[in-house]
């Protein structure tokens, strides 16, 4: 695996996930939203609902499925970052949802996407 740029790989997955969401009528509000509390890969709007999306990709399932990698620590960081986002945009009275988009990377053109809605709360 040495030599592969993980950052670029991650960006590729996020890009694919964003495309997937756009196709399904989501409006992308922000990508790679960062603050002290943590980072959110994609923030989208599904109608009036604000959706916080964590993207996880894997090339092999030898170490578990990608969606399994979003553990409670990661969830907590996302939750806190989401709270900061809502405060900073004065949107605390909106309904929101946390999704996970898992990307199974099986080669350049053969990626499979699994969108888990309301993956945690």
């Amino acid at each position: 695996m040495a030599g592969i740029n993980l950052r670029r790989q991650g960006n590729r997955y996020e890009h694919m996930a964003a495309g997937y969401l756009k196709e399904r009528g989501y409006k992308i509000v922000a990508r790679q939203f960062r603050c002290r509390q943590g980072e959110i890969d994609i923030i989208a709007e599904d109608g009036a609902l604000i959706v916080f999306v964590e993207v996880k990709g894997r090339r092999t399932c030898a170490f578990g499925l990608p969606e399994e990698a979003v553990d409670w620590r990661k969830q907590n960081r996302i939750r806190q970052a989401a709270e900061y986002f809502l405060w900073s945009r004065q949107k605390t009275d909106h309904l929101c949802r946390f999704d996970v988009v898992a990307v199974y990377d099986k080669g350049p053109q053969k990626c499979q996407i699994n969108h888990i809605k309301s993956a945690f709360s």
Partner: peptide, 17 residues
Amino acid sequence: GHIVDVEVDLARGLPSF
């Protein structure tokens, strides 16, 4: 026995329970 009021409030914001 002691009767307990179970008050439930739904508010907007980050989902939590």
